[in-house]
Design a protein around this nucleic acid. Structure first.
Lengths: 234, 234
DNA sequence: AAGTGGTCTAGACCACCTT
DNA sequence: AGGTGGTCTAGACCACTTG
């Protein structure tokens, strides 16, 4: 007798997904209750729950207590990106990594930086500009602000030798992060550091972190032309 | 007696995360076995498992059978983005949405498009250029290729009235998607459609979909200057 | 008020990976 | 070979939210 192996939650997930793709469950439809699906597949309700949890996280269905499970009618594409330490990113491309400190100074935060942190009053922070190189070519130019109230230790770090990006990642855990992507034309200053014509289109990553509600750092990373960020597969 | 309420998996997750943030469990460290943690917290192993699953997905720890659970030593920032249907995006900003078809023609795929699909030989596809407007101002210019082998129905759609973006999302489910972000300078043609100076930095979203291994569509969306994409919070 | 998803438990077995 | 995470089950109770 060919007894079928027991269904796993991924099997259930894939079957349900197939039904959604084939419009057996069409956009907007309400799916059967977990318990009924469990009965149909001959598995425990927990297994169906695990499958549904995954589908909900992928953005395929929406689940509400009492409301049941519905196929989203205007599906969104959900993509996840990993933003590694710049050195790791460079080395993973098989390139030689180098780092140059460009400037380091205490400055009052301008309104743009205050907005990123959600602050209403200016504050003195450490501003650090630095360049990351891959195979001796400019790779990413970063303009960073570090809050010296939450992170006074940064003042003692020799940033000519140690990279603020890595020092923070290794020494300053954060509890909240905000990430934004955009594009901008290189200013004369940017262009100079990145060795690219003024006005070049640069890919911009803005990353701001907090510990609790206290600001830690915000950084605007400008990637040299040609930079492309790919979503995680899977 | 104040009997503490039973621990939920989110409580366990938050406690473990706090220990990681406070370096109780430092980067590279191996965490205790799930079962030991369960005993410490006085809960079932399943509950610890659920908590760990979440931490692993956040990119804070790595789990391996037999190898145990380790705190990642080079943590990555993981961010999730939702890319909605353009109309929804515009309407959610409280703006009026409009759409204009710019061109529609059968063309041989150039090498760039073949590469996005992973094809080795050129193929004739339907190329559709269109403009999305918010409050009568150009918002996103899209340059799309639709595979007429997998999606012949597209040839019968009146794209002057119906928007290829939405038609595909509602009628052509996909099983795999690739998303990439970059930046580029507006060409004369782009600049004209987006009503912006030539050379403006444009935010670029490339989105390619397949059903099984068959290509469906690939689209390069160029956002008007000022566009910014924010990661999901939470 | 009642229906539905969310979670917890305890135990069992499986599958992968390191040693 | 053995240790660890991964999953399944069956049952129970809880919590949200809709009618």
């Amino acid at each position: 007798m060919s007894e079928p192996t027991r269904l796993s939650w991924t099997d259930v997930r894939d079957q349900i997904r197939a039904r959604i793709l084939s419009r057996t469950y069409a956009p907007g439809d309400r799916l059967p209750r977990d318990e009924d699906i469990a009965q149909e597949f001959g598995c425990a309700r927990t297994t169906v729950h695990r499958a549904m949890q995954d589908l909900a996280q992928m953005g395929l269905v929406e689940r509400k207590r009492k409301g049941g499970t519905h196929v989203l009618s205007d599906p969104v594409t959900r993509a996840t990106f990993d933003i590694p330490i710049t050195r790791c990113e460079v080395e993973q491309r098989g390139a030689k990594y180098d780092y140059q400190l460009i400037s380091r100074a205490l400055e009052q935060t301008p309104t743009g930086v205050m907005a990123r942190f959600g602050l209403h009053t200016p504050r003195e922070m450490l501003r650090v500009k630095a360049l990351h190189l891959a195979d001796n070519r400019p790779y990413v130019f970063e303009d960073r602000w570090v809050d010296t109230q939450s992170t006074p230790e940064i003042l003692d770090v020799d940033l000519t030798r140690e990279n603020a990006n890595e020092w923070l990642v290794h020494n300053k855990p954060f509890s909240r992060v905000d990430v934004r992507f955009s594009a901008m034309n290189a200013t004369a200053d940017n262009a100079h550091h990145l060795d690219t014509p003024e006005g070049s289109a640069l890919f911009v990553i803005e990353r701001t972190t907090w510990i609790g509600s206290a600001p830690i750092t915000t950084v605007q990373s400008l990637a040299a032309p040609g930079y492309q960020l790919a979503a995680n597969t899977g």
